[in-house]
Structure formats: structure tokens, C-alpha cells
Nucleic acid binder design. Structure first.
Lengths: 218, 218
DNA sequence: CCATGCGAAATGTGATCACATAATCCCGGC
DNA sequence: GCCGGGATTATGTGATCACATTTCGCATGG
């Protein structure tokens, strides 16, 4: 009852369930949550200062996207992916990302490449500072910046759910291959973009995607 | 403790929100709902004999999968797809389905092909009877039966959300091209399966997928 | 005849509660 | 020391309610 007084309804703010959803989404996608980590309705609700209802909606939405897994008893945890599933998701990335890159290539201009270059440097810095979350974030941002130019919202949306599903294990991947230099294929991607070479771009994207994830198998 | 592991849940039924979700899901995927149709929380709740809470969860889940669209005011309707979006979704199908078919090919056996043949005949009957819902249902079942053999749950799951997004417009597509005979490529798919010809199967699947949807563009 | 404004009905959102079940803890027995 | 079982706590589920906002119907005025 008191809480209803606090609401500043003058400014149209997004609904509470959406705020919770977005907050959890970036945490999952950036690997801030350990695989197998349990999330409770009341815990989320308390953390975001809301009741159980919007928390439940956010969790339901995230589980629908595969970002979280639902146990038989209704408990929600961040997924622990098997190698088979990781390989599947990598394959999906390898199918979608070259297509998105190719579509973006036709619309790419110099400012876009510059922006990607800047993001790539931030990515290199994250590696130098051994910051897994920043590494994952900038890496995804590098790819997303390109794909946004593809003007293919359905394909990008689907790809983002794949990224979401990989999120929690991304961090484990990062620590496992102990990067000390920037992903080598990012440079190839940029070169293909500058040259306007569709085939080279598709290949660079495919290898960048599969290479990083295949190391997790061993 | 042992008893709890066995989970003799003969009496325990699936949660209400899941029942609602599944019911609406098949309606959407089979094209039983026309594009732009509005769904209300209280309407769904009354229809399934539950309260608003599980109805909300089901709708939230379906919108997260792209099966339903959310207006700015929170209203939920079945999506009205633009031609661009349809083409995108067709392209995704064209990428995923040949891959799934190829994976299934290695595991395919005669009983599977027989089953697909039977489904295809049911599909032909639905066309003869001018029954759009049965046509869509059997058509999807034909493909799903094959892809289940691929043992690639992540890829199949993603594909099913694409089918979901196309659901409502599938019916419009059906009435537009006024089929009188079974899809010609289903036969090519079956032949490629019998021959164990991977390249032919990939091509047959790709054309089956794109051909049907490309007619909607005109 | 059409636009407009107002009031009523409908609708989504979020909080709270009761309940059943699952997970956890703790203690006694072997 | 370890295992098992019962009590206790934690958790998800679903119903109900209040409230703000949107939507719709309808009458009024141009």
C-alpha cells in the first residue's frame, strides 16, 4: 500500500517485469552467472524491489528463450550445457552469423567499420585486464554492431537467444582458453569488410564463431 | 527418498500455466488463429478455467518465443507479418532445415521413411478436403518427424519457434496458393532419404521450404 | 453525415495470500 | 562416523484484489 505512493507515474517507465527481465538478461548473456546457479522467485523479487509476480514473469520469459532452465519441481537455474549442446549452438551461430554478415556487408560504410574497430580495441583491453565479463560483452557488441546493419530483426533476434543460451558457459570458456591476445579473426572480419569481399567475410565469421567454441570441447 | 526420485506422479498433473501454454501453442502453430487477432488475459483464463495468473504466464512465454506480439499498451495479438519478415523467417528455415535433415539422414531407417510417407498421405488428404489446419499440421509433422532423428534438440527447438512465428500467416499462405496436389518436394525428400543422398536431401528441403513461402510475396 | 468528447467497460499490472510440495537441517540410532 | 527419518524451512503455484490506463460506445455538436 505504501509502495503504491512511491510510483512516479508521471514519467512513463517500463513495467517492473520488463526491468527485471532486462537486468537478468544482461547478467546471463555476459556470463555474470555461474552455470547451475539457482534463482529463486523471492530472491529476485527482493533484489529488484518488486513482488513475486513480475519476477515470475521475467523468469518465465527467460526460460522460454532458453536463457534459464526449469527443473521438474519448477526451480529455475542457469543452464549447464553439455558438449553436444554447445556444439549445436555453435553450429547455429555458424549458420546464422555469416548470413547476417553478408546482409550487412551490402549496407556497410566506413563509420561502421571504425566503430567496430573501436569496440575491438576495447575487447583487447578487456583481455589485457583479464576481465571476462567485459571481454564477452565487447565481443558480442562487435558482432552485434555488424549484424544490426543487416536490417534483419528476426534473424538477429534468433541469434541473440543463441547467445543467451551460451552466456553462462561463455565465462567458463574464457577462463579455459586463457586468451592473451585479441581474437585473430576479428581482424580478418574487418579486412573483408573493407574489401567488400563477401566470401572472405562469411569465412572469417564462421571460423571466428566455431574456433572459439570448439576449444571448449577438449 | 527413493520414492521421491521415482516420482510416481500419476495423480500430479502438469501446472495450469503449462496446459494453457500448450493449448495456445498448437493453435498458433497450426494457423487456427488469424493474424492480428487479439487475446485477452481474462478471456484465456475463462476459456481454460483458470485465473489470470497462469494465463499471463502462458502469454508471456508465447510472446517471448515470438508466437505472439505485444502492443505498447501490453495487449497481446497474433502477429501480422510483413513480407520482409516472412522472407527472413523463410531464410532461417532454409538454413536450419537442410542441416537438420542432413543430421537425421545418418540415423534414418526404413520405419522412419514409412512413417513420413504415411504422414504425407494424410497431408494429401487434407489438401483434397480443403482443410487448412490439417494441411499445416501434417506438413509440419512431416518435417518434424524427420528432424527428430537428428538428435539436435537445440536446433529443432529454435526451428519450432520459427514455425510458431509463421503460424498465423501460414493459413493465409495456404488459401492464397490454393493447393490441389501434395507438395511436390515431399516426394523428392523421401527419394533422397531412401537413396541416402545428402546433397539431394539438402536441396529438396531447401526448395520445399522456400518455394512454399516465396509465393506469399507476390 | 462525420468528427469529437465523455463516461463506462475492459484490460494489463502488480501485490498479497493460502496452499502443496520440495529441499534442508538436525538429531537419534546403529 | 555415518546413515536415515522427521520436523522445519524454503519455494513455486494459483487465486484474488485494487488500481491505472486504455479502449470502446454513444450521444452531442458542427
Amino acid at each position: 500500500m505504501v509502495e503504491t505512493l512511491i510510483r512516479p507515474s508521471v514519467t512513463s517507465e517500463p513495467p517492473a517485469h520488463d526491468r527485471v527481465y532486462r537486468g537478468l538478461r544482461v547478467q546471463v548473456m555476459h556470463g555474470e552467472l555461474t552455470p547451475g546457479q539457482a534463482l529463486t522467485l523471492r530472491g529476485i523479487a527482493r533484489e529488484y524491489g518488486v513482488s513475486m509476480t513480475p519476477a515470475r514473469e521475467a523468469l518465465r520469459r527467460l526460460t522460454a528463450e532458453g536463457a534459464l532452465t526449469l527443473s521438474a519441481s519448477g526451480r529455475v537455474t542457469t543452464p549447464e550445457l553439455t558438449n553436444d549442446r554447445i556444439e549445436e549452438l555453435a553450429q547455429i551461430r555458424a549458420l546464422l552469423e555469416p548470413e547476417l554478415g553478408s546482409r550487412a556487408l551490402r549496407r556497410a560504410h566506413l563509420a561502421l567499420i571504425d566503430r567496430m574497430e573501436a569496440i575491438n580495441e576495447a575487447n583487447a583491453r578487456a583481455i589485457h585486464l583479464q576481465n571476462p565479463v567485459d571481454y564477452i560483452r565487447t565481443n558480442l557488441e562487435f558482432h552485434r554492431t555488424l549484424y544490426l546493419r543487416a536490417q534483419s530483426p528476426a534473424m538477429l533476434g534468433l541469434l541473440e537467444t543463441v547467445w543467451l543460451q551460451l552466456g553462462p558457459t561463455m565465462r567458463a570458456l574464457y577462463t579455459k582458453l586463457r586468451r592473451t591476445t585479441a581474437p585473430p579473426h576479428h581482424r580478418l572480419i574487418l579486412e573483408a569488410l573493407r574489401a567488400g569481399d563477401d566470401a572472405a567475410l562469411r569465412l572469417a565469421l564462421r571460423t571466428d564463431v566455431t574456433q572459439g567454441l570448439r576449444h571448449l570441447q577438449g
